[in-house]
Nucleic acid binder design. Sequence first.
DNA 1: CGCGACTCCTGCCGGC
DNA 2: TGCCGGCAGGAGTCGC
Length: 270
Amino acid sequence: MPELPEVETSRRGIAPFLEGQAITRIVIRDRRLRWPVEPGFERKLTGTTIESVDRRAKYLLIRTGRGSVILHLGMSGHVHIVDTGTPAGVHDHVDIELASGKALRLRDPRRFGSLHFSATPLEHPLLAALGPEPLGPDFSGRHLWERSRGRRVAVKQFVMTPQVVVGVGNIYASESLFLAGIHPKRAAGRIAEARYERLADAVRTVLKKAIRAGGTTLRDFYGGDGEAGYFKQELAVYDREDLPCVNCGDPVRADVIGQRMSYYCVRCQT
DNA sequence: CGCGACTCCTGCCGGC
DNA sequence: TGCCGGCAGGAGTCGC
């Protein structure tokens, strides 16, 4: 669920409920996330007022007068707005209760997500070394080309590295490489700058499209329907093993690259 | 430093 | 129908 588009969709969904609200109480039912939630987390935030909800990479940043909540949803995390006092499910680990009577609730069955507090979140060790935002001004084919010189890893793994560029997860790596016509196993250091320009364009195109589809997901999300994937219909290769390539009709291949399942067209991607 | 393997955890799906 | 193995949209960490 939490690809960059879904995190961005969540941000847009929750921000109106949070901004300007005082935090009245924080309830943590299970501190065992990817890293244990630090003692004193609640104390540092209770009584402060939320100024904005931002996003950096796949991290949500809830900014308050005293510092920021740094929230990562991992593989299975969701945030949603509930009325304070709504009974919590087994995997509803954290509530941030607001003066309005609403609460931000974090649900994360696999507990791969994380929750931190920092006065200077962009300098936090988890965020300090991150690469550029794919939809921001610092991301380009030139950037990918420069960073990939001398690298022998498969380009798919390269483009999924958060220190290279953030927000390109397993789905969008496959989709972007298909759109750019680049074979996912090709060594990152052996791809010309012009092809990286095409890849950068493809990443931007795919992510923007997914964010638009994510807007639709949001309604389902709040309706408690889960994220019945409307953007799933738009996927060209991901999860389409043996189905015809939308471009040439050859069967889509599925293959493990760097311990992650990958999908591509042998004829269209070189 | 780069790279590949491993790790955390639960839910769900397909196959038998 | 029920059980079981395998796999899942992330990414830090470790050993070489």
